[in-house]
């Protein structure tokens, strides 16, 4: 949906200081653009729960982080997200890759297709779903809307080959 340079340009334009992430096969293609950027610091963690806590610490210290992970990691990281976003009301923003969404006809057995949207909805976070290429740039306005209202937000990005 985005090339590495495209997403890097958008994040820098939005004032993001740190990308806290674990890559997947789609998100991982952005790594070289992230690491080459002089305006973004890439923070790779070992497990996704760490990502929300690291981002929370960055935010507490005055930075503007974004969390980037696949939906499978989002499933794993729920308690950390709950604590940062709901207990402390830290307005973190996450970009979540929706595995197999664009391959749903050819990979119908991936249970990410069953659980991603219900799990995302369960966390009660304002979410923008870019389910097709034409909707991808709406994420910038959603990020700014969340920033201006000091609210957490998610950009759910369809992944796959279609």
């Amino acid at each position: 949906m985005f090339s590495g340079p495209e997403i890097t340009t958008q994040l820098v334009g939005l004032g993001v200081s740190h990308v806290v992430w674990i890559p997947d096969t789609t998100l991982g293609t952005w790594e070289s653009a992230f690491t080459e950027s002089k305006d973004l610091e890439l923070v790779q963690v070992c497990r996704e729960g760490e990502a929300w806590a690291t981002a929370a610490g960055l935010w507490l210290g005055g930075s503007v982080p974004i969390v980037v992970m696949q939906c499978t990691g989002f499933f794993e990281s729920g308690d950390s997200l709950r604590n940062a976003i709901h207990d402390y009301q830290i307005p973190l923003y996450g970009l979540i890759g929706y595995r197999s969404y664009l391959n749903s006809a050819t990979l119908p057995g991936d249970t990410c297709l069953t659980f991603t949207e219900p799990v995302v909805n369960a966390w009660n976070i304002d979410t923008y779903f870019a389910d097709k290429l034409e909707k991808r740039d709406g994420g910038q306005a959603h990020f700014l809307q969340c920033r201006d209202s000091c609210s957490p937000g998610l950009f759910l990005m369809a992944e796959g080959k279609a």
């Binding site: 729960g49 806590a53 690291t54 610490g57 960055l58 930075s63 950390s80």
Partner: peptide
């Protein structure tokens, strides 16, 4: 001082690392 209660148990090192990087 930041007393991390309520916590997501296990996440203090990551929280402190993020703060240390920002400061």
């Amino acid at each position: 001082d930041f007393m991390y209660i309520p916590s997501s148990m296990g996440q203090l090192p990551a929280l402190a690392m993020g703060f240390a990087m920002a400061q």
